[in-house]
């Protein structure tokens, strides 16, 4: 025999709600995106130079410098290769004198966070229950649910 239950409660139970960690991960990802240099691929990536093509720049360099062989840019790439995370870690381990890069960071603000609609950018009083994004009106909630809530289509 089928168990009788409310359709509304059943719907609410099925709705996936992002937990705190997942929301933090999303936030971190969004901040990383703000640091990116490019969002598209190198337009010259598939370009192959013809072997016989004259290399004008090399000739110029050799002409202006004296006989000592100049190092190419690639040499420096090999010679000093450390990414940003490695530099910060090295700084923390070997040069722990305060103040340093890590301690100079501005501390969190004493003022409360302000909230803006994820769709239109105006001040927003409401929070989307499944994902925690902010919205300001039913219209914006609609666009949010269609495009970005729990998925990322736009």
């Amino acid at each position: 025999m089928a168990v009788r239950e409310s359709g509304r409660v059943k719907d609410a139970m099925q709705k996936r709600i992002l937990d705190e960690d997942a929301r933090k991960r999303r936030q971190k990802k969004a901040l990383e995106a703000l640091e990116q240099d490019n969002f598209h691929e190198d337009p010259h990536a598939d370009l192959v130079m013809h072997k016989k093509a004259p290399k004008f720049q090399d000739d110029l360099k050799n002409a202006t410098r004296n006989k000592r062989k100049t190092r190419t840019a690639d040499y420096f790439k090999q010679r000093f290769r450390k990414n940003f995370a490695q530099l910060v870690e090295e700084d923390l381990n070997y040069n722990s004198t305060v103040p340093n890069y890590t301690t100079a960071q501005a501390p969190p603000s004493a003022f409360p966070d302000r909230h803006f609609c994820a769709v239109c950018g105006f001040p927003s009083p409401y929070t989307c229950i499944p994902c925690g994004a902010r919205y300001c009106s039913v219209k914006c909630l609609g666009s949010h649910l269609d495009t970005r809530c729990m998925k990322w289509t736009a």
Partner: peptide, 8 residues
């Protein structure tokens, strides 16, 4: 903090 950076 408007974009989620926890700094002054």
């Amino acid at each position: 903090s408007d974009v989620g950076i926890k700094q002054m």
